[in-house]
């Protein structure tokens, strides 16, 4: 059944889009991420313009992270104080990301920047994840015991001023790296149409030493708020959010996420991390191929601002 998307201005097959929502939802439930880094490229692939894809996916991620955050909230697995501090940076990052998005769109280089960000970020983060999970798998094979991480081990990040105590995470750290992480995630999310869970969770664990029991729930609160505000800002400034497309995606997404979460629980965590790393890497390389291979069509055209 074909349905005409009012903002993307093209007809799509409802079942195809719904299936994409379920598939990405399954993966996001399995790995505990939003799945924006898969959904945005998939939408571009079926013909939605990159700008509409990025803006629309932000609302899709807001839905899936809200559903996840509620589950963690019921289990008291969210550090609200930490989430609040992350949000201060996150909202500033989102606003500046949407601003840059608008500027780049006017310059005609938005597609390039989206593609380049995907290549650089996903290839590097994907490689790191693959390498780290492979080491963990090898280690598990050798002596079944991970090297004990000292919970009190300090890095230079702990020497910064403006220290705040986060009771639930049992942390006493400077808010500067917390703000910085929130800022970077909000910024990237607005430009790339990703929630960034796959970067945020490792960053909170390895840089700030946030305990694993609260890290996913807390990161989901940041993703939820930054993506919901990205939706509003993209809609208010660029008029690019396709509510109909978003609705089909998010309904498929939340259903798929339930099955994904069940599948994920049956797997070992380092295997999961390896699979996620390979997936992230593959998406990054796919964008790289597009940039480096001589395109079949050198020309493209687009509507200038103010004509819609």
């Amino acid at each position: 059944m074909e349905i005409y998307l009012p903002i993307a201005d093209l007809p799509v097959n409802v079942f195809l889009v719904f299936a994409m929502g379920i598939a990405v939802g399954f993966i996001s439930g399995m790995f505990g991420i939003g799945g924006g880094f898969l959904m945005t490229p998939l939408l571009i692939f079926i013909g939605v313009s990159p700008a509409v894809a990025v803006a629309t996916v932000s609302s899709h991620i807001a839905a899936s992270s809200f559903s996840g955050a509620l589950n963690y909230w019921r289990r008291r697995a969210i550090d609200l104080a930490l989430a609040f501090m992350l949000l201060i940076g996150g909202l500033i990052g989102t606003a500046s990301g949407v601003w840059l998005f608008t500027q780049l769109r006017a310059l005609g280089q938005l597609d390039l920047v989206i593609a380049l960000s995907y290549v650089i970020l996903l290839s590097s983060v994907g490689s790191l994840m693959v390498a780290e999970s492979l080491r963990a798998i090898v280690r598990a094979h050798r002596n079944k015991q991970a090297p004990a991480r000292h919970s009190g081990s300090h890095t230079w990040l702990h020497g910064l001023p403006l220290k705040v105590r986060f009771k639930q995470s049992r942390l006493y750290i400077s808010v500067i790296p917390v703000w910085a992480i929130g800022l970077v995630m909000g910024f990237l999310g607005a430009i790339m149409g990703i929630g960034g869970g796959f970067i945020l969770v490792p960053a909170l664990i390895y840089l700030l030493r946030v305990p694993t029991n609260v890290v996913i729930g807390t990161s989901m609160v940041l993703t939820l708020v930054t993506m919901a505000s990205a939706t509003i800002l993209h809609a208010a400034t660029n008029h690019l959010v396709d509510a109909l497309l978003a609705l089909i995606l998010m309904v498929g997404g939340v259903i798929g996420a339930q099955f994904g979460a069940q599948a994920g629980q049956k797997m070992r965590s380092e295997r999961l991390r390896l699979m996620l790393g390979l997936l992230v890497l593959a998406v990054g390389l796919r964008f790289a191929v597009n940039l480096f291979v001589t395109p079949g069509e050198m020309f493209s055209f687009r509507l200038m601002e103010g004509d819609r």
């Binding site: 903002i7 809200f66 996840g68 509620l70 959010v241 509510a243 998010m250 309904v251």
Partner: peptide
Amino acid sequence: VATAAVDNGLLYGIVTAMMALMTGWLAS
């Protein structure tokens, strides 16, 4: 939808965001 997105962008965005939250809440 097309008219609302252009004429009342902010309101349209807020409604879309609320729709996302509703979907997420219903799912949970």
